[in-house]
Design a protein around this nucleic acid. Structure first.
Lengths: 259, 259
DNA sequence: CCTAAGGTCTGACGTAACGTCAGACGCAAG
DNA sequence: CTTGCGTCTGACGTTACGTCAGACCTTAGG
Protein backbone atom coordinates (compact mmCIF):
# COMPACT_ATOMS: atom_id res chain seq x y z
CA UNK A 1 0.00 0.00 0.00
CA UNK A 2 2.69 2.38 1.02
CA UNK A 3 4.67 1.45 -2.03
CA UNK A 4 1.64 1.92 -4.20
CA UNK A 5 1.19 5.38 -2.77
CA UNK A 6 4.78 6.22 -3.48
CA UNK A 7 4.31 5.10 -7.01
CA UNK A 8 1.24 7.17 -7.48
CA UNK A 9 2.95 10.16 -5.96
CA UNK A 10 5.94 9.79 -8.19
CA UNK A 11 6.60 13.36 -9.27
CA UNK A 12 3.48 14.49 -7.50
CA UNK A 13 3.38 17.13 -4.81
CA UNK A 14 1.01 17.13 -1.92
CA UNK A 15 -0.68 20.42 -1.16
CA UNK A 16 1.77 21.91 1.30
CA UNK A 17 4.87 20.88 -0.62
CA UNK A 18 3.40 22.31 -3.74
CA UNK A 19 2.41 25.51 -1.99
CA UNK A 20 5.88 25.86 -0.54
CA UNK A 21 7.77 25.54 -3.75
CA UNK A 22 5.45 28.02 -5.39
CA UNK A 23 5.46 30.45 -2.50
CA UNK A 24 1.73 30.46 -1.89
CA UNK A 25 -0.50 29.04 0.84
CA UNK A 26 -2.51 25.86 0.79
CA UNK A 27 -5.63 27.93 1.18
CA UNK A 28 -4.73 29.79 -1.97
CA UNK A 29 -4.55 26.48 -3.78
CA UNK A 30 -8.01 25.61 -2.51
CA UNK A 31 -9.23 28.95 -3.73
CA UNK A 32 -7.75 28.54 -7.17
CA UNK A 33 -9.23 25.09 -7.34
CA UNK A 34 -12.69 26.36 -6.45
CA UNK A 35 -12.70 29.14 -8.97
CA UNK A 36 -11.33 26.79 -11.59
CA UNK A 37 -8.10 28.62 -12.08
CA UNK A 38 -5.87 25.72 -11.14
CA UNK A 39 -7.28 22.23 -10.63
CA UNK A 40 -4.95 19.61 -9.19
CA UNK A 41 -4.14 16.94 -11.73
CA UNK A 42 -4.84 14.14 -9.28
CA UNK A 43 -6.24 13.06 -5.95
CA UNK A 44 -5.25 10.43 -3.41
CA UNK A 45 -7.84 7.84 -2.44
CA UNK A 46 -8.55 10.01 0.60
CA UNK A 47 -9.39 12.97 -1.59
CA UNK A 48 -6.12 14.83 -1.02
CA UNK A 49 -5.05 17.09 -3.85
CA UNK A 50 -2.01 16.05 -5.87
CA UNK A 51 -0.17 18.45 -8.13
CA UNK A 52 2.35 17.67 -10.85
CA UNK A 53 5.06 19.68 -12.53
CA UNK A 54 2.80 21.01 -15.22
CA UNK A 55 0.59 22.37 -12.48
CA UNK A 56 3.61 24.10 -11.08
CA UNK A 57 4.31 25.80 -14.37
CA UNK A 58 0.77 27.04 -14.53
CA UNK A 59 0.85 28.24 -10.96
CA UNK A 60 4.01 30.16 -11.66
CA UNK A 61 2.33 31.78 -14.60
CA UNK A 62 -0.54 32.73 -12.37
CA UNK A 63 1.78 34.22 -9.78
CA UNK A 64 3.62 36.12 -12.47
CA UNK A 65 0.47 37.63 -13.88
CA UNK A 66 -0.72 38.48 -10.41
CA UNK A 67 2.50 40.34 -9.79
CA UNK A 68 1.73 42.41 -12.83
CA UNK A 69 -1.57 43.26 -11.26
CA UNK A 70 -4.05 41.19 -13.20
CA UNK A 71 -7.17 39.88 -11.51
CA UNK A 72 -7.67 36.16 -11.20
CA UNK A 73 -10.56 36.28 -13.67
CA UNK A 74 -8.38 37.91 -16.29
CA UNK A 75 -5.55 35.53 -15.58
CA UNK A 76 -7.91 32.65 -16.21
CA UNK A 77 -8.71 34.05 -19.62
CA UNK A 78 -5.17 34.97 -20.46
CA UNK A 79 -4.04 31.50 -19.61
CA UNK A 80 -6.56 29.48 -21.56
CA UNK A 81 -5.31 27.96 -24.78
CA UNK A 82 -7.00 30.28 -27.25
CA UNK A 83 -4.56 32.86 -25.91
CA UNK A 84 -6.68 35.94 -25.46
CA UNK A 85 -4.27 38.55 -26.67
CA UNK A 86 -1.69 38.95 -23.97
CA UNK A 87 -0.08 41.82 -25.82
CA UNK A 88 -3.01 44.17 -25.69
CA UNK A 89 -3.81 43.07 -22.16
CA UNK A 90 -0.35 44.19 -21.12
CA UNK A 91 -0.82 47.54 -22.76
CA UNK A 92 -4.12 48.05 -21.04
CA UNK A 93 -2.63 46.97 -17.75
CA UNK A 94 0.06 49.58 -18.11
CA UNK A 95 -2.58 52.27 -18.45
CA UNK A 96 -4.38 51.04 -15.39
CA UNK A 97 -1.20 51.02 -13.37
CA UNK A 98 -0.33 54.49 -14.57
CA UNK A 99 -3.73 55.74 -13.47
CA UNK A 100 -3.35 54.18 -10.05
CA UNK A 101 0.05 55.71 -9.66
CA UNK A 102 -1.41 59.05 -10.55
CA UNK A 103 -3.87 58.74 -7.72
CA UNK A 104 -1.20 57.81 -5.26
CA UNK A 105 0.88 60.74 -6.33
CA UNK A 106 -2.02 63.07 -5.81
CA UNK A 107 -2.71 61.67 -2.38
CA UNK A 108 0.95 62.06 -1.58
CA UNK A 109 0.95 65.66 -2.70
CA UNK A 110 -2.16 66.34 -0.66
CA UNK A 111 -0.57 64.86 2.44
CA UNK A 112 2.54 66.89 2.05
CA UNK A 113 0.58 70.08 1.67
CA UNK A 114 -1.50 69.15 4.67
CA UNK A 115 1.65 68.57 6.67
CA UNK A 116 2.93 71.98 5.72
CA UNK A 117 -0.27 73.50 6.97
CA UNK A 118 -0.09 71.55 10.19
CA UNK A 119 3.46 72.64 10.74
CA UNK A 120 2.34 76.25 10.66
CA UNK A 121 -0.98 75.96 12.36
CA UNK A 122 -1.31 73.32 15.01
CA UNK A 123 -5.00 72.83 14.52
CA UNK A 124 -6.08 71.00 11.35
CA UNK A 125 -7.61 73.52 9.03
CA UNK A 126 -10.15 71.44 7.18
CA UNK A 127 -11.21 74.22 4.96
CA UNK A 128 -7.67 74.64 3.74
CA UNK A 129 -7.34 70.89 3.22
CA UNK A 130 -10.40 70.91 1.10
CA UNK A 131 -9.02 73.68 -1.04
CA UNK A 132 -5.76 71.82 -1.40
CA UNK A 133 -7.51 68.81 -2.76
CA UNK A 134 -9.57 70.95 -5.05
CA UNK A 135 -6.40 72.44 -6.40
CA UNK A 136 -4.80 69.07 -6.86
CA UNK A 137 -7.74 67.57 -8.67
CA UNK A 138 -7.83 70.75 -10.72
CA UNK A 139 -4.20 70.32 -11.63
CA UNK A 140 -5.07 66.81 -12.49
CA UNK A 141 -7.74 68.05 -14.83
CA UNK A 142 -5.10 70.29 -16.28
CA UNK A 143 -2.88 67.27 -16.75
CA UNK A 144 -5.05 65.71 -19.34
CA UNK A 145 -6.04 68.92 -21.00
CA UNK A 146 -2.39 69.85 -21.10
CA UNK A 147 -1.71 68.18 -24.39
CA UNK A 148 -4.49 70.13 -26.03
CA UNK A 149 -3.90 73.59 -24.69
CA UNK A 150 -1.17 76.02 -25.43
CA UNK A 151 0.87 77.43 -22.59
CA UNK A 152 -0.87 80.77 -22.88
CA UNK A 153 -4.29 79.21 -22.81
CA UNK A 154 -3.41 77.38 -19.64
CA UNK A 155 -2.06 80.56 -18.16
CA UNK A 156 -5.32 82.28 -18.88
CA UNK A 157 -7.29 79.50 -17.36
CA UNK A 158 -5.23 79.62 -14.23
CA UNK A 159 -5.54 83.38 -13.94
CA UNK A 160 -9.22 83.22 -14.48
CA UNK A 161 -9.61 80.56 -11.83
CA UNK A 162 -8.20 83.00 -9.31
CA UNK A 163 -10.80 85.62 -10.10
CA UNK A 164 -13.72 83.32 -9.62
CA UNK A 165 -15.30 83.48 -6.17
CA UNK A 166 -14.68 80.26 -4.22
CA UNK A 167 -18.33 79.43 -3.78
CA UNK A 168 -18.76 79.42 -7.53
CA UNK A 169 -15.85 77.06 -7.87
CA UNK A 170 -17.33 74.84 -5.23
CA UNK A 171 -20.64 74.81 -6.99
CA UNK A 172 -18.85 74.01 -10.21
CA UNK A 173 -17.11 71.09 -8.63
CA UNK A 174 -20.35 69.76 -7.29
CA UNK A 175 -21.99 70.14 -10.67
CA UNK A 176 -19.05 68.39 -12.21
CA UNK A 177 -19.22 65.51 -9.79
CA UNK A 178 -22.94 65.18 -10.34
CA UNK A 179 -22.54 65.18 -14.08
CA UNK A 180 -19.85 62.56 -13.95
CA UNK A 181 -22.06 60.30 -11.89
CA UNK A 182 -24.88 60.72 -14.34
CA UNK A 183 -22.58 59.93 -17.21
CA UNK A 184 -21.36 56.81 -15.47
CA UNK A 185 -24.97 55.82 -14.90
CA UNK A 186 -25.75 56.41 -18.56
CA UNK A 187 -22.84 54.24 -19.55
CA UNK A 188 -23.97 51.53 -17.18
CA UNK A 189 -27.45 51.64 -18.67
CA UNK A 190 -25.96 51.26 -22.09
CA UNK A 191 -27.46 54.46 -23.41
CA UNK A 192 -26.62 55.39 -26.97
CA UNK A 193 -24.14 58.29 -27.19
CA UNK A 194 -26.24 59.61 -30.05
CA UNK A 195 -29.46 59.69 -28.04
CA UNK A 196 -31.20 62.76 -26.72
CA UNK A 197 -30.17 61.98 -23.21
CA UNK A 198 -26.54 61.74 -24.18
CA UNK A 199 -26.83 65.02 -26.05
CA UNK A 200 -28.14 66.69 -22.92
CA UNK A 201 -25.22 65.34 -20.96
CA UNK A 202 -22.78 66.46 -23.62
CA UNK A 203 -24.33 69.90 -23.55
CA UNK A 204 -23.85 70.14 -19.81
CA UNK A 205 -20.34 68.82 -20.11
CA UNK A 206 -19.43 71.44 -22.66
CA UNK A 207 -21.02 74.15 -20.58
CA UNK A 208 -19.00 73.18 -17.56
CA UNK A 209 -15.84 73.05 -19.57
CA UNK A 210 -16.61 76.45 -21.01
CA UNK A 211 -17.30 77.81 -17.56
CA UNK A 212 -14.09 76.30 -16.34
CA UNK A 213 -12.04 77.58 -19.22
CA UNK A 214 -13.62 80.99 -19.53
CA UNK A 215 -14.82 80.17 -23.00
CA UNK A 216 -12.24 82.14 -24.86
CA UNK A 217 -11.29 81.19 -28.35
CA UNK A 218 -7.86 79.79 -27.70
CA UNK A 219 -9.34 77.50 -25.19
CA UNK A 220 -12.09 76.58 -27.59
CA UNK A 221 -9.47 75.70 -30.12
CA UNK A 222 -7.90 73.43 -27.55
CA UNK A 223 -11.20 71.74 -26.99
CA UNK A 224 -11.69 71.22 -30.66
CA UNK A 225 -8.28 69.69 -30.97
CA UNK A 226 -9.22 67.46 -28.14
CA UNK A 227 -12.48 66.32 -29.70
CA UNK A 228 -10.84 65.79 -33.03
CA UNK A 229 -8.30 63.58 -31.36
CA UNK A 230 -10.86 61.42 -29.72
CA UNK A 231 -9.08 58.15 -30.39
CA UNK A 232 -6.34 59.57 -28.30
CA UNK A 233 -8.51 60.36 -25.36
CA UNK A 234 -6.24 60.40 -22.34
CA UNK A 235 -5.49 56.86 -21.32
CA UNK A 236 -4.92 57.56 -17.68
CA UNK A 237 -8.18 59.36 -17.32
CA UNK A 238 -8.39 61.23 -14.03
CA UNK A 239 -9.70 59.05 -11.34
CA UNK A 240 -13.33 59.97 -10.76
CA UNK A 241 -14.21 59.10 -14.33
CA UNK A 242 -13.95 55.72 -15.92
CA UNK A 243 -12.49 55.08 -19.34
CA UNK A 244 -15.96 54.18 -20.48
CA UNK A 245 -17.38 57.50 -19.34
CA UNK A 246 -14.63 59.32 -21.20
CA UNK A 247 -15.27 57.42 -24.38
CA UNK A 248 -18.99 57.94 -23.99
CA UNK A 249 -18.74 61.70 -23.54
CA UNK A 250 -16.35 61.90 -26.41
CA UNK A 251 -18.80 60.13 -28.68
CA UNK A 252 -21.72 62.16 -27.36
CA UNK A 253 -19.95 65.44 -27.97
CA UNK A 254 -18.93 64.37 -31.43
CA UNK A 255 -22.55 63.44 -32.18
CA UNK A 256 -23.65 66.81 -30.86
CA UNK A 257 -21.25 68.63 -33.14
CA UNK A 258 -22.36 66.63 -36.16
CA UNK A 259 -25.87 68.00 -35.85
CA UNK B 1 -48.56 70.57 8.01
CA UNK B 2 -46.57 71.45 4.97
CA UNK B 3 -45.48 74.66 6.63
CA UNK B 4 -44.47 72.77 9.70
CA UNK B 5 -42.35 70.51 7.55
CA UNK B 6 -40.72 73.44 5.91
CA UNK B 7 -39.90 74.87 9.26
CA UNK B 8 -38.38 71.66 10.42
CA UNK B 9 -36.39 71.39 7.24
CA UNK B 10 -35.13 74.91 7.51
CA UNK B 11 -31.45 74.55 6.70
CA UNK B 12 -31.83 70.81 6.53
CA UNK B 13 -31.00 68.69 3.53
CA UNK B 14 -32.81 65.59 2.55
CA UNK B 15 -30.67 62.63 1.60
CA UNK B 16 -30.32 63.19 -2.13
CA UNK B 17 -29.76 66.93 -1.86
CA UNK B 18 -27.15 66.36 0.77
CA UNK B 19 -25.49 63.66 -1.27
CA UNK B 20 -25.44 65.88 -4.31
CA UNK B 21 -23.76 68.84 -2.69
CA UNK B 22 -21.17 66.58 -1.14
CA UNK B 23 -20.58 64.56 -4.27
CA UNK B 24 -21.44 61.17 -2.84
CA UNK B 25 -24.37 58.79 -3.27
CA UNK B 26 -27.31 58.31 -0.98
CA UNK B 27 -26.22 54.75 -0.45
CA UNK B 28 -22.92 56.02 0.80
CA UNK B 29 -24.77 58.10 3.36
CA UNK B 30 -26.67 55.02 4.48
CA UNK B 31 -23.39 53.20 4.78
CA UNK B 32 -21.75 55.92 6.84
CA UNK B 33 -24.80 56.03 9.03
CA UNK B 34 -24.71 52.31 9.65
CA UNK B 35 -21.05 52.18 10.54
CA UNK B 36 -21.51 55.22 12.75
CA UNK B 37 -19.22 57.44 10.76
CA UNK B 38 -21.84 60.07 9.98
CA UNK B 39 -25.24 60.03 11.60
CA UNK B 40 -27.87 62.43 10.29
CA UNK B 41 -28.72 65.09 12.82
CA UNK B 42 -32.43 64.63 12.36
CA UNK B 43 -35.25 62.57 10.92
CA UNK B 44 -38.65 63.42 9.47
CA UNK B 45 -41.69 61.85 11.03
CA UNK B 46 -41.53 59.25 8.27
CA UNK B 47 -38.02 58.27 9.26
CA UNK B 48 -36.28 60.09 6.42
CA UNK B 49 -32.77 61.25 7.20
CA UNK B 50 -32.15 64.98 7.55
CA UNK B 51 -28.70 66.49 7.43
CA UNK B 52 -27.59 69.95 8.50
CA UNK B 53 -24.60 72.09 7.64
CA UNK B 54 -22.44 70.71 10.40
CA UNK B 55 -23.02 67.30 8.92
CA UNK B 56 -21.81 68.67 5.64
CA UNK B 57 -18.59 69.85 7.19
CA UNK B 58 -17.98 66.45 8.66
CA UNK B 59 -18.79 64.71 5.43
CA UNK B 60 -16.32 66.90 3.62
CA UNK B 61 -13.68 66.01 6.14
CA UNK B 62 -14.46 62.36 5.53
CA UNK B 63 -14.17 62.79 1.80
CA UNK B 64 -10.91 64.63 2.22
CA UNK B 65 -9.39 61.91 4.35
CA UNK B 66 -10.62 59.28 1.95
CA UNK B 67 -8.87 61.06 -0.86
CA UNK B 68 -5.69 60.77 1.12
CA UNK B 69 -6.25 57.07 1.28
CA UNK B 70 -7.40 56.46 4.81
CA UNK B 71 -9.84 53.70 5.58
CA UNK B 72 -13.22 54.57 7.02
CA UNK B 73 -12.28 53.04 10.35
CA UNK B 74 -9.23 55.23 10.64
CA UNK B 75 -11.20 58.26 9.54
CA UNK B 76 -13.65 57.60 12.31
CA UNK B 77 -10.83 57.68 14.81
CA UNK B 78 -9.08 60.64 13.30
CA UNK B 79 -12.29 62.59 13.38
CA UNK B 80 -13.37 61.98 16.93
CA UNK B 81 -12.79 64.83 19.34
CA UNK B 82 -9.81 63.44 21.23
CA UNK B 83 -7.98 64.04 17.97
CA UNK B 84 -5.94 60.88 17.62
CA UNK B 85 -2.74 62.33 16.31
CA UNK B 86 -3.40 63.35 12.77
CA UNK B 87 0.23 64.31 12.30
CA UNK B 88 1.69 60.86 12.82
CA UNK B 89 -1.18 59.31 10.90
CA UNK B 90 -0.23 61.42 7.92
CA UNK B 91 3.37 60.36 8.17
CA UNK B 92 2.43 56.74 8.33
CA UNK B 93 0.06 57.18 5.43
CA UNK B 94 2.87 58.59 3.35
CA UNK B 95 4.91 55.48 3.97
CA UNK B 96 2.04 53.27 2.97
CA UNK B 97 1.49 55.21 -0.20
CA UNK B 98 5.18 55.11 -1.02
CA UNK B 99 5.16 51.34 -0.61
CA UNK B 100 2.17 50.97 -2.88
CA UNK B 101 3.80 53.14 -5.46
CA UNK B 102 6.86 50.99 -5.30
CA UNK B 103 4.80 47.95 -6.15
CA UNK B 104 3.16 49.67 -9.05
CA UNK B 105 6.53 50.73 -10.36
CA UNK B 106 7.77 47.20 -10.19
CA UNK B 107 4.73 45.88 -11.96
CA UNK B 108 5.21 48.53 -14.60
CA UNK B 109 8.83 47.58 -15.08
CA UNK B 110 7.90 43.93 -15.33
CA UNK B 111 5.29 44.65 -17.97
CA UNK B 112 7.71 46.68 -20.04
CA UNK B 113 10.30 43.96 -19.93
CA UNK B 114 7.67 41.42 -20.84
CA UNK B 115 6.64 43.54 -23.79
CA UNK B 116 10.22 43.69 -24.98
CA UNK B 117 10.36 39.93 -24.88
CA UNK B 118 7.09 39.62 -26.73
CA UNK B 119 8.29 42.02 -29.39
CA UNK B 120 11.20 39.72 -30.11
CA UNK B 121 9.57 36.39 -29.63
CA UNK B 122 5.94 36.11 -30.55
CA UNK B 123 5.20 33.36 -28.08
CA UNK B 124 5.12 34.34 -24.40
CA UNK B 125 8.21 32.95 -22.76
CA UNK B 126 6.99 32.30 -19.24
CA UNK B 127 10.32 31.16 -18.04
CA UNK B 128 11.83 34.47 -19.05
CA UNK B 129 8.98 36.37 -17.42
CA UNK B 130 9.61 34.56 -14.21
CA UNK B 131 13.26 35.49 -14.29
CA UNK B 132 12.39 39.09 -14.98
CA UNK B 133 10.27 39.26 -11.91
CA UNK B 134 12.94 37.56 -9.88
CA UNK B 135 15.36 40.18 -11.01
CA UNK B 136 12.98 42.99 -10.20
CA UNK B 137 12.19 41.74 -6.75
CA UNK B 138 15.91 41.24 -6.29
CA UNK B 139 16.53 44.84 -7.25
CA UNK B 140 13.85 45.72 -4.83
CA UNK B 141 15.71 43.88 -2.11
CA UNK B 142 18.72 45.86 -3.16
CA UNK B 143 16.70 49.01 -2.79
CA UNK B 144 16.36 48.74 0.90
CA UNK B 145 19.79 47.37 1.51
CA UNK B 146 21.14 50.15 -0.63
CA UNK B 147 21.53 52.57 2.21
CA UNK B 148 23.60 50.12 4.14
CA UNK B 149 25.94 48.83 1.47
CA UNK B 150 28.78 50.52 -0.28
CA UNK B 151 28.80 50.65 -4.04
CA UNK B 152 31.54 48.06 -4.18
CA UNK B 153 29.69 45.71 -1.92
CA UNK B 154 26.63 45.94 -4.12
CA UNK B 155 28.78 45.37 -7.16
CA UNK B 156 30.14 42.23 -5.60
CA UNK B 157 26.71 41.01 -4.72
CA UNK B 158 25.50 41.55 -8.24
CA UNK B 159 28.50 39.77 -9.74
CA UNK B 160 28.11 36.92 -7.41
CA UNK B 161 24.45 36.58 -8.24
CA UNK B 162 25.42 35.94 -11.83
CA UNK B 163 27.68 33.06 -10.91
CA UNK B 164 25.04 31.25 -8.93
CA UNK B 165 23.20 28.58 -10.86
CA UNK B 166 19.59 29.55 -11.44
CA UNK B 167 18.13 26.58 -9.61
CA UNK B 168 19.98 27.62 -6.50
CA UNK B 169 18.57 31.10 -6.80
CA UNK B 170 15.14 29.68 -7.23
CA UNK B 171 15.55 27.55 -4.18
CA UNK B 172 16.78 30.58 -2.30
CA UNK B 173 13.75 32.56 -3.28
CA UNK B 174 11.48 29.77 -2.16
CA UNK B 175 13.31 29.51 1.13
CA UNK B 176 13.03 33.23 1.51
CA UNK B 177 9.33 33.24 0.83
CA UNK B 178 8.82 30.40 3.28
CA UNK B 179 10.80 32.13 5.96
CA UNK B 180 8.89 35.34 5.51
CA UNK B 181 5.62 33.53 5.89
CA UNK B 182 6.83 31.88 9.05
CA UNK B 183 7.97 35.18 10.43
CA UNK B 184 4.61 36.74 9.69
CA UNK B 185 2.97 33.82 11.44
CA UNK B 186 5.26 34.29 14.43
CA UNK B 187 4.35 37.94 14.58
CA UNK B 188 0.68 37.09 14.36
CA UNK B 189 1.06 34.63 17.23
CA UNK B 190 2.71 37.32 19.26
CA UNK B 191 5.87 35.35 19.79
CA UNK B 192 8.60 37.06 21.77
CA UNK B 193 11.51 38.19 19.56
CA UNK B 194 13.83 36.98 22.32
CA UNK B 195 12.39 33.48 22.37
CA UNK B 196 14.09 30.36 21.04
CA UNK B 197 11.76 30.21 18.10
CA UNK B 198 12.54 33.76 17.12
CA UNK B 199 16.24 33.01 17.45
CA UNK B 200 15.86 30.10 15.04
CA UNK B 201 14.12 32.35 12.56
CA UNK B 202 16.77 35.01 12.96
CA UNK B 203 19.42 32.40 12.32
CA UNK B 204 17.77 31.32 9.12
CA UNK B 205 17.28 34.92 8.09
CA UNK B 206 20.94 35.68 8.57
CA UNK B 207 21.93 32.56 6.73
CA UNK B 208 19.84 33.49 3.77
CA UNK B 209 21.19 36.99 3.75
CA UNK B 210 24.70 35.62 3.93
CA UNK B 211 23.98 33.25 1.09
CA UNK B 212 22.51 36.08 -0.88
CA UNK B 213 25.35 38.42 -0.18
CA UNK B 214 28.19 35.96 -0.49
CA UNK B 215 29.14 36.48 3.12
CA UNK B 216 32.12 38.63 2.50
CA UNK B 217 33.27 41.09 5.08
CA UNK B 218 32.22 44.29 3.41
CA UNK B 219 28.77 42.93 3.09
CA UNK B 220 28.86 41.81 6.68
CA UNK B 221 29.80 45.31 7.67
CA UNK B 222 26.78 46.54 5.78
CA UNK B 223 24.60 44.13 7.66
CA UNK B 224 26.00 45.27 10.94
CA UNK B 225 25.34 48.86 10.06
CA UNK B 226 21.85 47.83 9.22
CA UNK B 227 21.25 46.06 12.49
CA UNK B 228 22.75 48.91 14.44
CA UNK B 229 20.39 51.24 12.72
CA UNK B 230 17.34 49.25 13.57
CA UNK B 231 15.21 52.22 14.45
CA UNK B 232 15.72 53.26 10.91
CA UNK B 233 14.53 50.03 9.44
CA UNK B 234 13.32 50.85 5.94
CA UNK B 235 9.93 52.45 6.17
CA UNK B 236 8.67 51.34 2.80
CA UNK B 237 9.53 47.75 3.48
CA UNK B 238 9.37 45.65 0.32
CA UNK B 239 5.95 44.31 -0.27
CA UNK B 240 5.98 40.67 0.77
CA UNK B 241 6.96 41.58 4.32
CA UNK B 242 4.95 43.63 6.73
CA UNK B 243 6.38 46.38 8.87
CA UNK B 244 5.73 44.17 11.85
CA UNK B 245 7.73 41.32 10.39
CA UNK B 246 10.61 43.66 9.73
CA UNK B 247 10.56 45.01 13.24
CA UNK B 248 10.29 41.51 14.63
CA UNK B 249 13.26 40.17 12.68
CA UNK B 250 15.24 43.20 13.61
CA UNK B 251 14.57 42.61 17.28
CA UNK B 252 15.21 38.89 16.98
CA UNK B 253 18.53 39.42 15.27
CA UNK B 254 19.54 41.97 17.85
CA UNK B 255 18.65 39.52 20.61
CA UNK B 256 20.67 36.86 18.84
CA UNK B 257 23.69 39.07 18.68
CA UNK B 258 23.42 40.01 22.33
CA UNK B 259 23.93 36.42 23.35
C1' DC C 1 -59.89 60.84 -4.49
C1' DC C 2 -56.86 58.13 -7.15
C1' DT C 3 -52.72 57.54 -9.40
C1' DA C 4 -48.19 58.07 -11.30
C1' DA C 5 -43.63 59.75 -10.56
C1' DG C 6 -39.91 60.08 -7.84
C1' DG C 7 -37.83 59.77 -3.25
C1' DT C 8 -36.82 56.96 1.15
C1' DC C 9 -36.34 53.02 4.12
C1' DT C 10 -34.43 48.37 5.39
C1' DG C 11 -32.38 44.05 4.55
C1' DA C 12 -29.91 40.83 1.83
C1' DC C 13 -26.68 39.55 -1.46
C1' DG C 14 -22.43 40.58 -4.49
C1' DT C 15 -17.64 42.11 -5.12
C1' DA C 16 -11.73 40.27 -4.74
C1' DA C 17 -8.77 37.19 -2.97
C1' DC C 18 -8.10 34.91 0.09
C1' DG C 19 -7.52 34.28 5.94
C1' DT C 20 -9.36 32.19 9.77
C1' DC C 21 -11.78 29.14 12.37
C1' DA C 22 -14.39 24.73 13.15
C1' DG C 23 -15.34 19.98 12.84
C1' DA C 24 -14.10 15.74 10.82
C1' DC C 25 -10.97 12.67 8.83
C1' DG C 26 -5.97 10.65 7.14
C1' DC C 27 -1.47 9.00 8.08
C1' DA C 28 2.90 7.72 10.08
C1' DA C 29 5.74 7.17 14.34
C1' DG C 30 6.41 5.92 19.21
C1' DC D 1 -3.53 3.65 20.69
C1' DT D 2 -2.30 8.13 21.05
C1' DT D 3 0.12 12.23 19.35
C1' DG D 4 1.32 15.36 15.93
C1' DC D 5 0.92 17.05 11.64
C1' DG D 6 -1.69 17.34 7.48
C1' DT D 7 -6.06 17.50 4.58
C1' DC D 8 -10.86 18.35 3.52
C1' DT D 9 -15.15 21.24 3.39
C1' DG D 10 -18.09 24.89 4.64
C1' DA D 11 -19.02 29.24 6.64
C1' DC D 12 -17.98 33.68 8.04
C1' DG D 13 -14.88 38.06 7.94
C1' DT D 14 -12.59 41.68 5.32
C1' DT D 15 -13.53 46.89 2.44
C1' DA D 16 -16.72 50.29 0.83
C1' DC D 17 -20.09 50.51 -0.97
C1' DG D 18 -23.60 48.94 -5.54
C1' DT D 19 -27.59 46.65 -6.71
C1' DC D 20 -31.85 44.77 -6.30
C1' DA D 21 -36.35 43.89 -3.87
C1' DG D 22 -40.36 45.03 -1.35
C1' DA D 23 -42.72 48.47 1.07
C1' DC D 24 -43.79 53.17 2.38
C1' DC D 25 -44.00 58.64 1.83
C1' DT D 26 -44.94 62.82 -0.73
C1' DT D 27 -46.60 65.68 -4.13
C1' DA D 28 -48.60 67.15 -8.46
C1' DG D 29 -52.00 66.25 -11.87
C1' DG D 30 -56.46 64.26 -13.71
Amino acid sequence: MKVAMKEIREDMYQAHEFARVAGVTVRTLHHYDRIGLLKPSGYTSAGYRLYCKRDLVRLQQIVTLKFIGFQLKQIKELLNPNAFDLVSALTRQKEIIAAKREQLDQAMKAIEKAQELLAINDEPDWDAFKRIIEVITMQNNMDWTKKYYSKEAKQKIAERAKTIPPEVIEQGQRDWATLIREVEAAVAEGIDPKSEKAAALAERWSTLIRAFTGGNSEVQAGLNKMYADKDNWPANFPKPYSDEAGAFMCAAIAALKDK
